[in-house]
Computed example of a mutant assay.
Amino acid sequence: MVNGAVLVSTLLSLVAAARSTRRATEPGARRWARPEAFLALVVALVYLNQVLFTVYVLRVHGGDATFIARYLPEGYFALEDGPAMRGLAEHFPKPELLAPSLLRVQAFLELPFGLLIYLTVLRWLDRGLYRRLATSWLVWAASLSYTFVFCAVEWDLRNPYTVDDIVIRACSAVLTPFFLRWLARQEGDGPGRASFARMLLFAASAWAFGYLVLTVYDTALLYNLGHLGGRLPGAVLALCILVGARVASSRLPDGEAGIALSSVAGGLRWALLLFFVPALAVRYGVNFGSPPLAAAAGLAICLAAGACALRECLSGAGTARIALWAAQGTTALALGGAVGYAAVRLVTDEYYEAGLLRGAAAFLAVVVAVCAVSDRRLARWTV
């Protein structure tokens, strides 16, 4: 089922995504209505649910999660059972009423959590594209695709709560797009031009944000609240980097970008647009489907994004400039690939996504730096 989702969602995105975001929408003016603000609210609800779930297991099941853990893979249910949590559990009235905190609450929250993560990153890169994408029918397609994959995984890991979870996920799939479309309509105008500094800050933001998302994934979505203490120092550092990068980026003036840097920014925009619908299917295709098929789908989207970006950025450029761009791109990709590979191999990660995130951020930073510096050098030589 996951393989089918990979194929259908990838083909749909490649065929229709670009046409579906061309129509401009009227910007709003509510600066507080940002996806990251509501993502923080969803994360707070997820952690609140984890506390209530822990109280439920401690009081109703004597701290033993075997009754549900036997249905799921290894790596779940490292409970927090310190004095503070046990004190809360001892004084919590009617803990048996907290039974829905097991899987059911999370089944509703996972879809908005995933979509808000994606739209937050897209907004940092291009507010206009974020507004157009989130107000188009693609948000419904993404909701359906993500929910189908979630339900397929639920069915593969069947447990006594699977039917409840599927019904709840279906409700979330209907309600979440309405909210996301409303949220995007509140978006105001923002800077759309790429610059060296802004792209480097975007790379730093993406790494720090991804680190925080993986922390939430491990400590909350996998019910491992007991891991939070060990991950807290790294999460605090990542949060400081993220806040600093976003504040600095918001204060930067619009900058000029040469052809090479513009092609990098354009490629990222196209990639985020085309990956929106099939992103979760490709991600879970690695574990619950066919890894070669998931890799092929990801590669096809990357190639399509690159082709669209080059068509935009190299339009009207002369043969000599295109040849220079090819040299810039080759150098940037070679250096970025070497640094990214080293970053992946530098540390052994518990989750492979952490290594990929670190490698991708290092790769992007090097590519941006090489393209920006070489663009400036070429601009001086041609004056």
Rank of each mutant, 00 (worst) to 15 (best):
A334W: 01
L357V: 06
A342P: 03
T348S: 12
L357W: 04
R321V: 02
E353G: 09
L324C: 07
A326D: 10
A326M: 08
G337F: 08
L357T: 00
G355R: 07
R321Y: 04
L335M: 01
A343Y: 05
G340L: 02
E350G: 13
A343S: 09
A334K: 00
A323S: 05
T348C: 06
G359N: 06
A327C: 10
A343G: 04
S315F: 00
W325N: 02
R321C: 03
T331Q: 05
Y352R: 13
R321L: 08
I322M: 10
A332I: 02
A338Y: 08
I322D: 04
T348W: 13
G340W: 05
G359Y: 02
E353P: 07
V347S: 07
A326Y: 02
G318Y: 03
G318M: 05
V344F: 15
V339W: 08
D349I: 08
T348K: 13
A338W: 03
L324I: 03
T348P: 01
V339Q: 04
R345A: 15
G359I: 02
G316W: 05
R321P: 02
A326T: 11
G336H: 04
T348L: 13
R358F: 11
A317K: 09
A343D: 00
L335P: 04
Y351F: 15
A354Y: 12
A342M: 11
A334F: 05
A342C: 10
G316E: 04
Y351H: 15
L324H: 04
L346Q: 13
Y341G: 10
D349E: 14
A354H: 13
A334I: 03
L356V: 10
T319K: 12
A343F: 11
E353A: 09
